[in-house]
Design a protein around this nucleic acid. Structure first.
Lengths: 119, 119
DNA sequence: AGACAAGGTTACATAAAAGTAACTGGTTGA
DNA sequence: TCAACCAGTTACTTTTATGTAACCTTGTCT
């Protein structure tokens, strides 16, 4: 609290004693989950897998391209998995992974916080 | 779980029964707290007010311009407050508001999650 | 055959975020 | 006086994100 976090050296130059090395955990986390739509998509998958076009309809605002970009990125980050549920009628579904589920906790907090505080 | 969230109308057009109206809570929350640096800045202010240049040093990567942009936006959003602690030696400090504190829970969870899961 | 659905892709345009570097004007201590 | 500090500002540039609209292939329904 009253902790000194800076000190002045002999030549009177201040320097940070605890610089936040650039990708500090909060930033790293935000890079994975903070993108537009990412949180919402994960949230929509929490109860059951959802198909591409259904997701597109649910997230009214997102175009297929944006949705697709996001889904690919989320798959790379292992938050979700793409499953072909049938070839010939070709059908695909996206489901949350176990890792994806580990993010639901704080997303719920974020949601509650936003409901309470953000118009 | 097995809940039907879509239905097909007479003309066979599917429609979303629960579209996520665009700024759903998770998105709204991210808009306030999700920007690059925003979370980190708030985190750095949690124990005591910090002065502009000290903050700049702590957040090694952020330039003064970016830092300033972020601080202004965060002040608009009432997450932080700018306090002139002295004119003539002019000095300014940024402190977290009570509202800003309401976001710390979420940030802490995000931080722990990132530490555990994000390289 | 024609309309519509599924699950995308492509090319392009715009907007928002982030960064660089130089500069300001005042203060302070050697 | 000179160098360094404070708290920014200004003028750009670059990068990343987001969005629009048209298009594609396979398939089903009527």
């Amino acid at each position: 609290m009253g902790k000194m976090e800076f000190q002045t050296d002999i030549s009177r130059r201040r320097k940070a004693l605890d610089p936040c090395f650039e990708p500090c955990p909060i930033e790293r986390g935000m890079r994975v989950i903070g993108g537009k739509w990412t949180g919402s998509i994960l949230w929509h998958l929490k109860d059951h897998p959802v198909r591409f076009n259904d997701l597109a309809r649910q997230l009214g605002g997102a175009s297929k391209k944006v949705l697709n970009d996001r889904l690919k990125q989320m798959e790379e980050n292992k938050l979700i998995k793409r499953i072909v549920i049938s070839t010939r009628p070709f059908a695909v579904s996206y489901e949350i992974t176990d890792f994806g589920r580990t993010a639901l906790n704080f997303l719920e907090e974020l949601k509650d916080w936003a409901i309470e505080h953000i118009v």
